[in-house]
Design a protein around this nucleic acid. Sequence first.
RNA 1: GGCUCUGUGGUCAAGCGGUUAAGACACCGCCCUUUCACGGCGGUCACCCGGGUUCGAAUCCCGGCAGAGUCACCA
Length: 483
Amino acid sequence: MSDSTMVRTRFAPSPTGFMHIGNLRTGLYSYLYARKHNGTFVLRIEDTDRERFVEGATEMIYSTLAKAKIDYDEGPEKDGGYGPYIQSERKELYKKYAEELVAMGKAYYCFCDKERLESLKDENGVRTYDKHCRYLSKEEIDAKLKSGAPYVIRFKVPDNVVSSYTDLVFGEISVATEDLEDIILLKSDGMPTYNFANVVDDHSMNITHILRGVEYLSTTPLYNLIYDAFGWQRPTYIHLSPIMKDAQRKLSKRYGDANFEDFVKRGFLPEAIVNYIALLGWCPKDNTEKMTMEEMIEKFDIDGISKSPSIFDETKMRWLNGEYFKEMPFEQYYEMAKPYIAKAELKGNYDTKEIAFLMQTRTEILDDIPEKIAFLDNFGDYDLEWYNHKKMKVDLEVAKKCIEAWLQEIPNTAWDEESIKASMGIAAEKAELKAGQVMFTVRLAMTGTQITPGGAVEMAIILGKEESVRRLNVSLEMINKAL
RNA sequence: GGCUCUGUGGUCAAGCGGUUAAGACACCGCCCUUUCACGGCGGUCACCCGGGUUCGAAUCCCGGCAGAGUCACCA
């Protein structure tokens, strides 16, 4: 692409709460596209809706982008000559442009009130504006304006034209203008509608490629008509299918659990979240799944963007997150895991570092840690059914023998991997059991947990000899009672 | 309801007129580990339906069906 240096994309979130991941993905793709083409990525805050404005939400946008490592070249506090980048600070622009359009005869004042508009509803409750004010005489308009009657400015959609454009993902989209309404550009309070503000901003910020949700796919012809009316160059569009909660419902803020910040709090790594959502609706040519931001930039291409909606799968994101932990240097994992180990509020005097060491390859999300190490403190009632292991040929009887055998041979001096392992082997041999049977049984008897962060030897070491023996006796008693 | 879009295993997805229809998650099994996990290997599971076009269709066309989006002085 010869004009690749000219690429300018933008991300334009509204400060209305937490950043949900569908939204973040749109920002990510805009970012990737800009970086891929050595373009400029701009952040614009669309805060014209005072009703939905949420305190602190703007800061949330900044912090989310920072954690996600999506850095913008232009934006609030980062002027690139196209500012201001906060929509509420650009008010004058819109009015000026709307009036310009009226002067050109491509927009008009409309004085219709709510009641009249309401009366236009059809049997389905769908309302279409009948263009009533489009045909007001000059005298009527002047008189109304002079009388101070409230008005809006509406766009004059050309009659009987088919407006088409080529979306880079969806291909050619055509809509007949008779299906388009004379939309409002400027509201009666002088503020622009979202649609109009968007067109004006994107044009005046010289945005060349617009990446946004598919919900705009069929209204884009209308946007284009506005560009045309001004004689502005139309941007290139890249519409993105939504991320769904299930086949029917879109992932939205209302479900609350789909926002970036919550995932981070639960122990998902920002880079894993970003990596995962990049894969929802996009697939690189070589099918790579685990990618760094740099790799994503390098591999990003419009061709790999899918047209159909994708359902968010937390299970897969958990898996990916776990992959990130596995390849992380231990010290880094240790620092991250510490607070979560502390969360378990273990009363025993355990080696935190040792716990972290055992947990690293067994962690999908940090939030799972407390639960997985809870057995260190909580030991007692567990299901004796767990001793029945068909393949290992263990049942309650065998379990009893295993525990008793090891108790006989338990190391008296050293309490380390070598001696513990050896003692288990000897115990098995003497009792004519398999070492695997002893280890399996003893691990269960010491932890009361089916899946533990380590084998029998590790569990014995971390619990300490005294506690290990105590628990073995408790388990033995439980088994004896059941037999 | 009008208009626009979408439709490959449970999920993410590759596929771009000729493939035994990839791969990943999940699930199941085996191996490794004398025990948990990790890891390795293997398995079950898919082209929405019906018509065309073509020697040949998951791929192109038409129709149905299903789902989504949109039709605000919200963004």
